[in-house]
Simulated assay, not measured.
Amino acid sequence: MRPIEALLFVSAALSGATALAANKPKPDFVADPAVQRAATAYAAQAVATARDQFGIKLDGTDASMVQLEAVLARAHTSYAAKSPRPSDEQVMAVARMYGSYLGEVYRLKHGGAWGMAPLDGQTLPGMRTTAGTNFWPWTQASQRISKGAGNNVADYYKVLLTK
């Protein structure tokens, strides 16, 4: 199974999703309590891991996105230094944790919901703001780890605050 197929399988299992009939349009967001529960647990794990492994305090504030960026910058440095590179599944395991922290801080401070949303032809775990904007914290964290500083999560979060 290719990495993206494994992610989609896990995402579908998390949401209890069933296939939509071919003639029905796909919604652009479906709130999902199972994704919410998973994100809450992953976010708590992110706080503990940042504290225990990096000595960094993630305190649940908007300002903590700077600390989250520092954690993910270290994760990227580690990723880039390894040969062979960590697998997509290994990157996503870390990205789920820290992306969930990003999403949970946003949800708790500004509202929104976790669920499943289409992105680039796939349906992935994501969030919808109260204004109706979809965003994908797990995907953003994954890109920060694997692609580097051009995917800065503190900057990403600042943009979210303007939507």
Rank of each mutant, 00 (worst) to 15 (best):
residue 3 P to Y: 12
residue 3 P to F: 10
residue 4 I to K: 13
residue 5 E to H: 12
residue 6 A to N: 12
residue 7 L to D: 09
residue 8 L to V: 10
residue 8 L to C: 09
residue 9 F to N: 13
residue 10 V to F: 09
residue 16 G to V: 02
residue 19 A to D: 10
residue 22 A to F: 08
residue 23 N to P: 05
residue 24 K to N: 13
residue 27 P to F: 10
residue 28 D to W: 06
residue 32 D to R: 12
residue 32 D to S: 15
residue 33 P to Q: 14
residue 36 Q to R: 15
residue 36 Q to E: 15
residue 40 T to L: 12
residue 41 A to E: 15
residue 42 Y to G: 00
residue 45 Q to T: 15
residue 46 A to E: 00
residue 47 V to A: 03
residue 49 T to G: 04
residue 49 T to R: 11
residue 51 R to N: 13
residue 52 D to V: 05
residue 54 F to Y: 14
residue 55 G to L: 05
residue 57 K to M: 05
residue 59 D to L: 03
residue 59 D to N: 09
residue 59 D to E: 07
residue 60 G to L: 02
residue 61 T to W: 01
residue 62 D to I: 06
residue 64 S to M: 00
residue 64 S to G: 07
residue 65 M to N: 11
residue 65 M to A: 13
residue 68 L to T: 05
residue 68 L to V: 03
residue 68 L to Y: 08
residue 73 A to L: 12
residue 74 R to K: 14
residue 75 A to C: 14
residue 76 H to A: 03
residue 78 S to N: 12
residue 78 S to T: 13
residue 82 K to I: 00
residue 84 P to G: 07
residue 86 P to W: 06
residue 87 S to N: 05
residue 87 S to Y: 06
residue 88 D to Q: 10
residue 90 Q to Y: 03
residue 91 V to S: 11
residue 92 M to E: 12
residue 93 A to N: 08
residue 93 A to V: 06
residue 93 A to M: 04
residue 93 A to H: 03
residue 95 A to I: 03
residue 96 R to D: 06
residue 97 M to F: 00
residue 97 M to P: 01
residue 99 G to K: 00
residue 100 S to P: 04
residue 102 L to M: 15
residue 107 R to I: 10
residue 109 K to I: 00
residue 110 H to T: 07
residue 112 G to H: 01
residue 113 A to Y: 01
residue 114 W to P: 04
residue 114 W to S: 08
residue 115 G to N: 12
residue 116 M to R: 07
residue 118 P to D: 11
residue 118 P to K: 10
residue 120 D to W: 08
residue 121 G to D: 11
residue 125 P to G: 01
residue 126 G to M: 03
residue 126 G to T: 01
residue 126 G to S: 06
residue 127 M to N: 04
residue 128 R to D: 08
residue 129 T to Y: 07
residue 131 A to P: 03
residue 133 T to W: 02
residue 133 T to M: 09
residue 135 F to V: 01
residue 138 W to H: 14
residue 138 W to D: 11
residue 139 T to H: 14
residue 141 A to T: 01
residue 147 K to Q: 15
residue 152 N to F: 02
residue 155 D to A: 15
residue 155 D to N: 13
residue 157 Y to G: 07
residue 158 K to G: 09
residue 159 V to C: 01
residue 162 T to H: 08
